[in-house]
Design a protein around this nucleic acid. Structure first.
Lengths: 160, 160
DNA sequence: GAGATATCGTTAGCACAGCTAACGATCTCG
DNA sequence: CGAGATCGTTAGCTGTGCTAACGATATCTC
C-alpha cells in the first residue's frame, strides 16, 4: 500500500498514510459506537440534530439543516419527529416571522446526555487501560487531530 | 469545553475527557468528509459495504450484513444496488449452495479507490501543514487510537 | 436413508431519511 | 405599493432500516 524505505521499519510519518489511518480509525470507532445509540430510541439523524441544538443552543431550522448538511425539507421532518417526542420545541421569532427557532427541552437535554454518556463510556473504559505515558501521548494526538480539523474546515467552505 | 488548571496548559489526561474529545473529533471529521462522497454517486451504506468487499475480499452476504451491522434483507438490497451498478457480483458457492459470495468487480475497485482518494486528499492536505515533530506525535496518537479500538472490539462482542 | 431442524438469502410490507419541485408567508428594497 | 428574495412546509420520488414469513439447502437424529 505505502512504500517503505528498504530495511527501515520506523515510518517517516508520511502525511498521506497518516491521513488514511486516521480516517479509517474514525470510521471504525463510530461504527462500533453506533450500536449504543439503539438504547436511546432515537435514529442517528435525530440524535445528531438534537446534539447540535443542545450543545449549540437555539438555532433556526435552516441553519440547523446546513449544519447537518441536509436540505430544509429533511430537517423539517427530523425536527417534527423530535418535537413529537418532546425533545425540542419550535419557537416563533418576533423580529422575522419567517424564521422558526428550534430549542431543546429539558427532556431533550436529559436524553442526549444519557445517550452520549453511553457512547463515551465504552470508549472511556478502553482509554483507561492506557498508562500515564500513553494517555499523555494520546492526548497530544487528539489535540493535533483537532488542529488538523480546524485547518480543514477553515480551508474548505469559502461560502454557501 | 475542558477545564484547565489556571496558568497550566497541559492537562492531567483525564480518560473520560479524552474519550469525549476523541469521540467528538471523529464525528466532526467524518461529517466534514461526508460531503466528498456525493461525487462518487454512491450512498453512504453502499460505499461502506463496497469498501468492506474491496478491502476484505469476497465475503458472504450474511457476514457482510453483520460486519455492517445491518439485517440480511437490508444487505440484500444494498448488494442488489451495487450489482446493478456493476460494482460487485454475486457468485454461488459450490460447497454450500445456500450461500452467496459477494465479490468486487474491477470497476468496483476503481470507483472505491477514487472515492477514498477524494476523501483522504482533503485530510491529507491539512495533515501536510504539520511539522515533522507534530507529524510524529500525531502518528503516535493514531497508533494509540488503534490500540484503544482493538481493546474495545475485543471486549465488546462476546458472541452473537 | 427419511424426516425434523437449522441456516441462508429473498420477498413483502412498514417507517424514516434523503432529495427536488412547488407553494404560501414574510421580509426587503425600489 | 409592487417586485424580488428568503424561510419553512407540503407533495411525491428513491433508498435504507426493520420484522415476519418463505423457499432452498445442509445437517442432525433416529
Amino acid at each position: 500500500m505505502t512504500r517503505r524505505a528498504p530495511g527501515k521499519i520506523a515510518k517517516k510519518a508520511d502525511p498521506k498514510a497518516l491521513a488514511d489511518a486516521l480516517h479509517s480509525a474514525a470510521i471504525h470507532l463510530l461504527r462500533t459506537l453506533r450500536k449504543e445509540d439503539d438504547a436511546s430510541g432515537l435514529s442517528a439523524p435525530r440524535l445528531s440534530a438534537l446534539s447540535v441544538v443542545v450543545f449549540g443552543g437555539p438555532i433556526t431550522l435552516g441553519r440547523l439543516a446546513r449544519t447537518e448538511q441536509v436540505r430544509p425539507p429533511t430537517m423539517t421532518r427530523i425536527v417534527t419527529g423530535l418535537e413529537r417526542a418532546g425533545l425540542v420545541k419550535r419557537v416563533g421569532v418576533a423580529d422575522d416571522r419567517r424564521l422558526t427557532r428550534i430549542e431543546a427541552t429539558a427532556k431533550g437535554q436529559r436524553v442526549l446526555a444519557a445517550g452520549r454518556a453511553r457512547r463515551v463510556a465504552l470508549l472511556t473504559e478502553s482509554v483507561r487501560l492506557l498508562g500515564d505515558r500513553e494517555l499523555a501521548e494520546l492526548g497530544r494526538g487528539v489535540q493535533l487531530f483537532n488542529d488538523v480539523l480546524a485547518s480543514m474546515t477553515a480551508r474548505l467552505p469559502p461560502g454557501k
